[in-house]
Computed example of a mutant assay.
Amino acid sequence: MAKKQRKRSPSSFQNPQSSARSAAAKEAARTVAEGWHPRPLLPQLRLVFALAGLGVLCIVIFLALWLPSKGVVDDLRSRGVTATAAVTKVDDKPETVEVRFRSSGETVTTNLHDYAGMRPEVQVGQTLTVRYDRQDPSRVLTQSWVNSPPIVNLPMLGTAALALLLLAAAAFLTLRRHQVLSLAEVSSQDGSPSSSLAVEEDGKTTQLSKE
């Protein structure tokens, strides 16, 4: 007696065309997944300008500290007069060093001029050799600082380093912005039908694509 053939459930039948479409869809999804890259962010122009502006501000502060002090040193070297002065007062708030010396037969009491915000570390009663301007005795520095000014000091070094850091950051963001825009242009000229690139600037996302 022949065995009775078991009937197959209708759900077990698969349309060949449907199967082919499913396989093609899976392959397309895999291709898209492999070619997907995170959306690049376009550095904002206002951030670049802000960093560059702060860098320029630091340069201005550096020059404001250095140029007046350099001018005093140059003037004292050219027309300064040497004298022996006694330190009469030292204060930290604000930082001042008061000295007393004689000029043209008169006693002059004034504060040592700062060099880029710095003054020498001295004590009350200490004797110093100073160089001053006869036309303006308040322009006075120690003879040692006139001969060899302190080139490296904390205020000047800090502002110079910060300026370089800010300008370098602005240059990096400018270069990054150029790279993102170049990538967007190349992507928009790509022959693939789905080539696209999204860039974000000032909180707005722009989709660049070629259909």
Rank of each mutant, 00 (worst) to 15 (best):
V108C: 05
E211W: 11
A168C: 12
E27C: 02
G117C: 01
T159R: 00
K204N: 06
N111S: 14
Q17L: 06
Q179F: 15
V186F: 14
S192M: 06
R100L: 02
I59W: 12
R21Y: 13
S144N: 13
A168S: 14
K26P: 00
S188M: 11
K89I: 03
S187G: 13
V72W: 05
V60R: 14
L166E: 09
L42D: 00
R79C: 07
P38V: 08
A86G: 02
V140E: 00
E200Q: 06
K26C: 05
L42P: 02
G55K: 03
S194R: 03
V90C: 09
A161K: 03
S104L: 12
G80N: 08
V146C: 11
S19G: 05
L181E: 00
N111E: 14
S187H: 03
F172Q: 15
A24D: 00
Q17C: 00
N15R: 07
V90F: 09
A20H: 04
G191Y: 07
Q14P: 00
T84A: 05
L54Q: 15
R134D: 04
V186Y: 12
V146A: 08
R134V: 12
P155F: 10
K70P: 02
V140F: 01
L63E: 07
G35K: 07
S69D: 02
D202K: 05
K26L: 15
S78A: 14
E200C: 10
D190T: 00
L164R: 07
V73I: 13
V87S: 01
Q135R: 13
L54N: 10
L47A: 12
S188Q: 12
E34W: 04
L67D: 01
V60W: 10
Q17V: 03
S209V: 01
Q207A: 09
K3E: 09
A33K: 03
Q189C: 06
L154A: 10
Q126M: 14
L47F: 11
A52I: 10
L57H: 06
D136E: 07
A170L: 04
T206M: 08
A163H: 08
R100N: 01
K4L: 08
Q126S: 11
E121G: 12
L42W: 03
R77A: 02
L47T: 14
T84I: 10
S144I: 08
R102S: 07
L51R: 08
S187M: 14
I61P: 02
V60P: 02
V73C: 03
D190P: 00
